[in-house]
Simulated assay, not measured.
Amino acid sequence: MTLLIVGATGTLGRQITRHALDQGLKVKCFVRYPKKASFLKEWGADLAVGNLTKPETIEAALEGVTEIIDAATTRATDTLRIREVDWQGQVSLIQAAEKANIKRFIFFSIFNAEKYPNVPLMDIKHCTEKFLAQTSLNYTILRPCGFFQNLIAEYAIPILENQTIWVGGESSPIAYMNTQDIAKFAVRALTLEQAERESFAIAGVKAWLPADILRQCERLSGRTARTARMPLGLLRFSRKVALGFEWGWSFAERMAYAEVLASGIPFTAEMDRTCELFGIDKDELTTLESYLQEYFGRILRKLKELDYKEPKVKTTF
């Protein structure tokens, strides 16, 4: 088996790479910038330089590959639009995989993507699912609800740096999961017959509201969060403004997804059957409480070692 991981430098992709290597798999990573991906090579993976928007580089990367895990997506900071990577690039990858007779293709979509045709990222993910289903590929589709890791930049760091945390709309409870745990499902799917040409929701053990996450962060950091509410109307207005500028296209398209997360509709799924099928003990999945406790414990120890003192707030009269 030679596994190609697409999106290997991302939040999820790097955990998939690490877990696949730990399982003794031969891994090749499809990357745009080899210098930024040097850590993957240090781990033991081979690098294939290319770009999903350049089909010829995909074909070259697939030489000798038997399986693919596709965790690629555009980032909010990318200049490329979602359609260029998450649709056109994905179609090129899937077509190349079918032509190369890839034995297994694992694709990462988004939970409930089919329910939001007006949200670019979710609609494109759903369209990609349908396109994949029309091929002869032996695929598995995984649909995560959200990642623990994204909560660090959204909640933990702002609290530590005394920055304002924006909370929008009614806020949907979301069953986030550690990307290290999601990686186990992805690698297990490579050899699981029951997962062939099937789709699975991937959810954490509990759905969390922003207020609950904030309380956890406050308790573990010993600090009080500064919060402000982002009205849904203002969020939509900001998205329309961003669409007026080329540099804001990708950002605006992802803000439409933020509106979904501010709708109040729960993002969670029952995982008992999925965990049993994949042979993963549900009780061993990381809880958000333990994840945040480990993070804050590590950071606060480091700050103590550095004898860090919070800057005093100047008061003007």
Rank of each mutant, 00 (worst) to 15 (best):
L4V: 00
V6S: 01
G7E: 10
L12Q: 08
G13V: 05
G13H: 04
R14D: 06
R18H: 04
H19L: 12
A20P: 00
K28V: 01
C29A: 13
Y33K: 12
Y33E: 15
P34N: 09
G44W: 10
P55Y: 03
I58T: 04
A60R: 08
L62W: 09
V65Q: 03
T66W: 06
T66C: 08
T66V: 11
I69Q: 09
A71C: 14
T77H: 12
R81Q: 11
E84T: 05
Q90N: 15
E98M: 07
A100L: 04
A100G: 00
S109G: 09
E114I: 05
I124V: 14
F131D: 01
I141W: 01
L142P: 01
Y155I: 14
Y155D: 08
I157Q: 10
P158I: 10
T164W: 05
W166T: 08
V167M: 13
G168A: 15
S171A: 15
S172Y: 04
D181S: 04
V187P: 03
A189T: 02
Q194Y: 06
A195I: 05
F200E: 10
A201M: 08
I202P: 00
G204F: 11
K206E: 12
Q216A: 13
G233F: 09
L234E: 09
L235H: 11
R236Y: 10
S250F: 03
F251T: 06
F251L: 13
A262R: 02
E270F: 06
M271T: 04
F278W: 06
L285W: 03
Q293K: 13
F296Y: 14
I299P: 00
R301C: 13
